[in-house]
Nucleic acid binder design. Structure first.
Lengths: 236, 236
DNA sequence: CAGTGGTCTAGACCACGAT
DNA sequence: TCGTGGTCTAGACCACTGG
């Protein structure tokens, strides 16, 4: 059996038992790579091989230049149900939070513009937001919607539910949506916003939401830390 | 910019252009790691860092001890629709194939047994299958169903659609199913069956299928090569 | 048998975090 | 300032693939 397998198998217990120096400081924090290297009489390359495999499995994750941590349980999500993020988290005993990073009016890429089937290229609102579960950053998203349709959007409480704002402040109701979901690597710029490392596996979700007239209301790109989410779908 | 970034960015074009020795032999095959190491005046560790990031993105994949290859386009799949695998592939211009690895009667783990809510532990059929798209292995699955309910199942054409066999040979019709979907790493034993490497990101799908009486008909665990699949879901 | 990827060693320097 | 993870070098031996 490869050495990294031995290390990999031993790591979760080693961390939970709190034997090693780092672990008793912050709960769930793994010992440093150099400590592990000594513990297993190996090298950093091999230790990191073990760590990265555990990361791929969704057992641990890392914060950029901080260290490696055990993953809490995943958020269970049904892509069919249009359940509010806060409600979803609360139902599962998790604390949800959203931070608005930026909100500006701008032109958008052709791909996004064409999805809206508008007459001519005009301004869009572009929102960048981060979502947290129990204060752990788990998702970044970009939201695009036509500026003309949502005057004064920038002044709203954009760290709350966009759906609610659309509905209460603009009488725009979502009646239907389409989600494309792929597994890919977290792009470096998104990773930076999450204080994570680029290259980690993530779930990329492109969501288009429509009103009853089949008009596109908003275009949403989400990147989820892969270890933070689990999907459950029913079909009849 | 890190060196592995430079290599990563240059690789797809380098492969497609067919400049390097390996690439013109097998279409889509990347140059060997040692060739790349020379080309970029670097080391294997760094070259592999670039390769593994591309793998995580779903741009390339590797066959165990054979080499790295560019990924073909993903199979688009709607977890809500109960579409036959062959039909789905055909609609998207892909050639589907299924290989039966093993089929035996056996006891099963408590987790699976309990899902069936049977009176007492009895034998189950356990099928292992591999699925290919255009002759590329993209999925391994385990299927479990109660042996008593499907006498002689082992003699059927198990490299075709199980759903069809259930329906035509046993008058058992699936009316409803539930899928759990998570991103994780391909376990080593599954990787071996696919001639791939353990540790690569994969989509793990646990599917439970029920008849009209809400009885569990079969229990299915699938591991998809993450770069081979894309999900699209509609919600109303 | 030659070449490949899989695994591993034993170092190094840097930027950044915590203190 | 010290320790951390991020990146990188320059090798090595092995098991296996393919000719």
């Amino acid at each position: 059996m490869p050495l990294y397998q031995t290390i990999k198998d031993a790591l979760p217990e080693l961390t939970l038992s709190g034997e090693m120096t780092d672990s008793d400081k912050t709960p769930g924090k793994l010992p440093s790579e150099r400590q592990l290297q000594q513990q297993f009489n190996s090298t950093r390359v091999t230790v990191r091989e073990a760590l990265m495999r555990l990361e791929a499995e969704g057992v641990i994750y890392r914060q950029n230049r901080i260290g490696w941590f055990l993953c809490p349980k995943r958020l269970l999500w049904d892509p069919i149900q249009k359940v509010n993020f806060y409600q979803l988290a609360k139902n599962q005993g998790l604390k949800a939070r959203t931070d608005l990073l930026t909100c500006k009016q701008t032109r958008v890429s052709d791909e996004i513009f064409q999805a809206f089937a508008l007459d001519k290229q005009s301004d869009f609102y572009e929102l960048y937001r981060i979502r947290y579960l129990d204060d752990r950053p788990v998702m970044v998203e970009e939201i695009y919607c036509p500026a003309q349709q949502f005057p004064g959007l920038a002044e709203k409480a954009l760290d709350s539910s966009i759906t609610t704002i659309f509905q209460d402040d603009y009488q725009v109701k979502i009646s239907h949506e389409q989600s494309d979901i792929i597994v890919t690597a977290l792009p470096d710029d998104k990773a930076e916003q999450l204080n994570l490392n680029g290259g980690a596996a993530c779930l990329k979700i492109i969501r288009k939401r429509f009103n009853a007239q089949q008009e596109l209301v908003d275009y949403n790109i989400e990147y989820w830390l892969h270890s933070a989410i689990e999907m459950r779908v029913q079909s009849n």
